[in-house]
Amino acid sequence: MTGNSRYTIALHVLTWMALVARRGRDLVTSEQIAGSVNTNPVFLRRVLGPLREAGLVNSQRGSGAGWRLARPAAEITLAQVYHAMADQPLFPMHHGEPNPNCPVGHGIRPALAPLYRAAEDALTRQLAGTTIKDLLADTLRQHAAS
């Protein structure tokens, strides 16, 4: 099973945008952001879209086009980013309906649902305690330590 890195990339993007804003420049292009992430700007725009829909970034079209944080980095939690990027549950159920005549097939979903919900709630609570500003500070500490 492979993981989806869109959440991590979204955190990278927002943290980089916070650094740029802290340095006095808040409007950046997807090409500039892609340079930090080391990815294709087209892919990056697919990450920025859900962030814009969630009200975490704004885009400006036309002359001087670019992206900026929609609010201060101290007001964007990692939980908000998680919810913006989650296109499916953390632990999705079967794609098809299990065999209802099988004791496991009949009971697996109702048995797993509360466990999955509790795990996702715990994750969300953990992520809600950290902001993009916090992540930037931790990132810069890591950079300085190396």
Rank of each mutant, 00 (worst) to 15 (best):
S146R: 15
W16Q: 05
I33G: 11
D26C: 09
G35V: 06
R45Y: 06
A10K: 03
Y82S: 04
V13S: 12
R6Y: 05
A73W: 07
F43T: 15
L136A: 01
H106D: 14
P50R: 02
V42K: 09
A73I: 09
E75W: 02
R68E: 10
P98G: 01
W67S: 08
P41Y: 04
A65G: 09
G55T: 02
A54E: 09
A119H: 15
D134A: 08
G105N: 03
Q142C: 06
L19Y: 14
M85K: 13
L127H: 06
R46S: 13
A70C: 03
P98Y: 03
Y7F: 13
I108K: 11
L19N: 13
M85R: 08
P98A: 04
L78Q: 11
L140Y: 01
R141A: 14
Q126D: 13
L14H: 08
L19S: 14
R141F: 07
V104A: 11
K133L: 12
R23A: 08
I76K: 04
E31S: 10
R68V: 02
L140A: 06
T130A: 10
Y116K: 14
Y116A: 15
A122Y: 03
S63N: 14
R109P: 02
N101G: 08
P98F: 03
T39H: 13
G35N: 13
L11P: 07
G3N: 10
L11Y: 03
G105R: 00
D138P: 02
W16P: 00
M17K: 01
I33Y: 03
V81D: 06
A137E: 11
P89R: 12
R45E: 14
P89W: 03
P103Y: 00
G64W: 05
A128H: 08
E31C: 05
A21V: 09
A122K: 07
P98C: 03
H106A: 15
D138F: 00
A137F: 01
V42M: 06
K133S: 12
M1H: 08
V13L: 15
V37C: 08
N38L: 11
R52S: 13
T29H: 08
V28C: 08
A137M: 00
A74M: 10
R52Q: 13
G66D: 02
Q60I: 12
R45T: 14
D134L: 08
A111M: 12
C102E: 14
A84D: 07
